[in-house]
């Protein structure tokens, strides 16, 4: 058989698409043609070796971390639109979100209120300031992936 045709059949063999008769044709041709044997035998040997490559074990905490993410997603999906917006801004870390809300409330009702009194600020610019801070936080969160940043830092330490 023509060596070019054998190459086409070899491609089928390597992609697990060859029939038994194709495999037999290849075997016969390789036993006769030294050029093809030299070219394709290493590939066929590698093809066999692929079947003994083992899968890597998943990390021990894989399931637990997934369970946490699933739970976080469930909680997020059950939130009211307003709370969902807050979680969108601060991520699915609920504790962080709650602390942030409390912090925002405190900042509105105590120190900023006193600043308003001292500097005679109007409440509307203050409110706009808080909203713009929230938007900046949102933009930063969208631009950065904090987890990766932490991993990156660890790698470079």
């Amino acid at each position: 058989m023509d060596c070019n045709k054998i190459e086409q059949i070899i491609v089928e063999v390597l992609t697990n698409a060859a029939s038994d008769s194709d495999v037999e044709i290849v075997r016969l041709h390789l036993s006769e043609c030294s050029i093809c044997r030299e070219q394709f035998m290493p590939m066929l040997a590698m093809n066999k070796t692929f079947s003994i490559i083992k899968q890597h074990e998943i990390p021990a905490v894989f399931d637990e971390r997934f369970r946490q993410k699933l739970l976080a997603q469930k909680i997020t999906s059950e939130l009211s639109p307003a709370l969902k917006f807050i979680v969108e801004i601060f991520g699915t870390n609920i504790r962080f979100a709650i602390i942030s809300i409390v912090g925002a409330l405190l900042s509105v009702f105590s120190p900023i209120e006193s600043l308003i009194n001292i500097y005679q600020w109007n409440i509307i610019p203050t409110f706009l300031l808080i909203i713009s801070l929230l938007i900046i936080t949102f933009i930063i969160k969208q631009s950065f992936n904090w987890n990766t940043l932490i991993f990156y830092r660890r790698k470079n330490v």
Binding site: V11, L14, T15, A17, M43, N47
Partner: peptide
């Protein structure tokens, strides 16, 4: 198929 074949060639 071409990419798989090429990959085998590189290997």
């Amino acid at each position: 198929k071409q990419r798989v074949f090429r990959a085998f060639k590189i290997l």
